[in-house]
Nucleic acid binder design. Structure first.
Length: 303
DNA sequence: AATAACTCCAACCGCGCTGCG
DNA sequence: TCGCAGCGCGGTTGGAGTTAT
């Protein structure tokens, strides 16, 4: 039943990629550009399935990928976006242009989810006892945040970075790359914030705009939705109910209908929807504001 | 020093969506 | 309209590395 695995073929290699394989893949993509993954294994002689090639490229070899060292700001973005979008890692990743969905997903699962859970427990007990230990909580949580974000990453990543750097040089020189860049440029909304967010973000923005995700939502509704109370309750809901996106996403759906419904309802698409703007605005400091707000509101930090 | 327990992340798997013939 | 191929996404896993005992 179901589709047979794409890597079922005998002779298809699995497991970690070697630098040699990376070079072969990168060279091929340099020549032909990313895409048409089906033909990659046959044309390169790599004993990998197309899926594996695509994954390796998108998650590690693609130029411009930043690895390890999530900044507190990035963490804040992830936490808010996760609360807002649920486990839609690709969507979240589009707001963090240098991070891959896999990276964000891993980081959430290994660091942030635990921390949120831990914090919620602490918050619950502090609310019950109505103690005034919030400042201690804050400093501890902040220390935790800082120490984790200072951690570095895998060993092979460095050689991957080298390949990426080599590739960046090619991206600048290659006419294909220029075309690609142009295409991405076209997707950029004409908003001054875009220079911060980058192409991946604009891609998502466009996707969202195409979906008409926000077109029918009133500004007021969204402001209510993004109010601290909602953000917080969603975040806590989320962190306490395993990893299903239902908590926050269903909140969204309850209020605004499913993506499909919204898509169906909307044909007039704003260049920017409110949630985009809100998130983009975070780049200029709203995350910090919200964090401050959270302290004021319930005497307890988000992290 | 040995090893058990734990953490982290690269890679895999399966499913859904989309486009095409 | 249907079936298939290709691609993208999210969940899960395996194993290397790290820490605790």
């Amino acid at each position: 039943m179901g589709r047979p695995p794409c890597c079922d073929k005998v002779g298809v290699k699995k497991g970690p990629w070697t630098p040699e394989e990376d070079i072969i893949l990168v060279s091929y993509i340099q020549e032909h550009g990313p895409g048409n993954w089906r033909s990659v294994p046959t044309n390169t002689g790599l004993l990998r399935c197309s899926k594996s090639c695509r994954l390796r490229w998108t998650n590690y070899l693609r130029p411009g990928i930043k690895r390890g060292n999530f900044t507190p700001h990035e963490e804040g973005m992830i936490i808010h976006l996760q609360a807002l979008l649920g486990n839609r890692w690709a969507a979240i990743a589009s707001y963090l242009p240098q991070r891959t969905d896999n990276d964000i997903k891993n980081y959430w699962n290994t660091h942030l989810k635990k921390r949120m859970k831990k914090f919620q427990t602490a918050l619950d007990s502090s609310l019950v006892s109505n103690s005034s230990s919030s400042s201690q909580l804050l400093s501890k949580s902040q220390n935790d945040m800082n120490s984790t974000s200072l951690r570095s990453c895998s060993t092979y990543a460095s050689s991957t970075e080298n390949i990426s750097k080599l590739l960046e040089g090619w991206m600048k020189a290659s006419p294909k790359a220029t075309t690609l860049k142009k295409d991405q440029e076209k997707e950029k909304p004409s908003n001054e914030n875009t220079n911060v967010v980058g192409t991946a973000s604009s891609q998502f923005t466009q996707t969202k705009v195409e979906e008409g995700e926000c077109g029918v939502i009133s500004h007021e509704e969204l402001e209510n939705f993004f109010s601290f109370e909602n953000l917080n309750s969603m975040a806590w809901e989320k962190s306490s109910t395993d990893s299903t996106p239902q908590g926050s996403l269903s909140s969204l759906n309850d209020r605004f209908g499913t993506m499909t419904e919204v898509k169906e309802r909307s044909s007039n698409r704003p260049a920017y929807c409110f949630s985009d703007k809100w998130i983009l605005d975070e780049e200029s400091g709203q995350v910090e504001d919200l964090m401050d707000l959270s302290l004021d509101c319930c005497s307890a930090p988000i992290f």
